[in-house]
Design a protein around this nucleic acid. Structure first.
Lengths: 224, 224
DNA sequence: TGATCTTTGGTGACTTGGTCACCAAACTTG
DNA sequence: CAAGTTTGGTGACCAAGTCACCAAAGATCA
């Protein structure tokens, strides 16, 4: 009982026993392979996903066909913004893709609505998740408007690096992550390489001097 | 009974009588003068506001002291994003200011939480409002990243014009509305003036050829 | 094993937008 | 009306996005 998936989600551990039972009975665990489209424009979202393993990348497709990265959902978090659209019966304009193999709990609309009605703890969980995502969006907007590209790229590289300090992504992918052009990424990375912070090969960037990158990021948030 | 404020809000007219009664009893109508700070970072939001009259401008203040415009709440709409933070007991990073004299219904946290629990219609109202705001934010991000400044300024001028086709705003204000610098606004407006679309005087822009502005806006959304 | 195709990255020229420094004109306040 | 404040204008410069094009690294397949 103590090792149920429910305890992996911070706000849910305080749920009373009856609600837990309903939540477990009314939802199911699903696994999807890397690359799966989890939700997309035109498709009604019918489930709230709580991620157990893997990451989901949420992007906005613009009319002109280009894409902007919005945020990334990690294990222990939920794709909660879809719920607004799920309950509002409105179409979602963003799309979510599994970046890795993903294991998740899918809560159907019916169960979700029921639990929101019944459980104050579940309600707080949902609204807290909202609050976090919305704050993230505000921060993103702020970043796009005021932050220099080199700083944004440096901090994104640090986030995306694996345990060997390698980022597996093409310049084009990094471009859409930051909402900029591939050329800008190429130039900025050359500059980082010239300074001895990174080494590049096709499809990957090795961070060989994280300190340099970190100093660049810090220097920008310190104009007080 | 039919002329209650409740009917001014699209999703609420279907509320059953008992819920209506609770909503009316548990909320109050407030009036604040133009310029009032309705919510701001550091202050916990204790009420959900439903606007009856006037407009509220929601901005994000960055660490560097600059501001980005996020969205505008009109009569018949709600400041719903504050509720996430209200229920999540998290601080809000954005601030809301009355742009005009504002009349609104303030629903305290307690009443709000209660109604979300009890009423499916109220729940749908809340989630629909969320969905709309979030979609607006997505559109904003898309705009910032991909749209040219002249197009963005033209469409904003058309939005902000009063019945006499005059926009009452300084270049600096228009700058923060669009997340750009005053100088850029000045240059772009000079260009619009040169083309005979607008006339300027201190603190206001008169649209004398809306067609020109509208054509510019349309031309940009038509690259299919 | 090459020949060809596709994906990825590099580059120069140019345009747009943001920053800085500074000034001038228009209002406001005493 | 004099002095201060707000608003708008301008040139020089830098950062970033766009366009056109090419070259190198892998992938595919006869």
């Amino acid at each position: 009982m103590a090792d149920t998936w429910i305890n992996k989600f911070k706000g849910l551990s305080r749920l009373p026993a009856d609600i837990r039972a309903e939540l477990e009975a009314g939802s199911q665990i699903v696994s999807v392979p890397s690359g799966t489209e989890i939700f997309s424009p035109g498709q009604t979202a019918d489930n709230l996903w709580l991620l157990l393993d893997g990451t989901v990348k949420v992007q906005q497709k613009s009319e002109t066909g280009r894409e902007v990265f919005l945020y990334r959902v990690h294990a222990g978090e939920s794709c909660v913004l879809t719920t607004a659209c799920m309950l509002a019966f409105e179409d979602y304009s963003a799309e979510g893709t599994a970046e890795t193999d993903v294991k998740a709990v899918a809560i159907p609309r019916k169960t979700f609505d029921d639990l929101v009605a019944k459980s104050p703890v579940f309600r707080e969980f949902v609204f807290t998740a909202y609050s976090r995502r919305i704050t993230d969006l505000f921060t993103l907007i702020d970043d796009i408007v005021f932050q220099r590209m080199d700083v944004r790229l440096a901090s994104r590289l640090l986030e995306l690096a694996d345990e060997d300090n390698v980022v597996h992504a093409t310049h084009a992918v990094l471009g859409t992550e930051l909402g900029t052009a591939r050329e800008v990424i190429s130039r900025t990375l050359s500059e980082f390489q010239r300074r001895g912070w990174v080494e590049q090969s096709r499809g990957e960037v090795r961070l060989i001097n994280k300190d340099g990158l970190e100093r660049l990021v810090k220097s920008s948030s310190a104009h007080l």
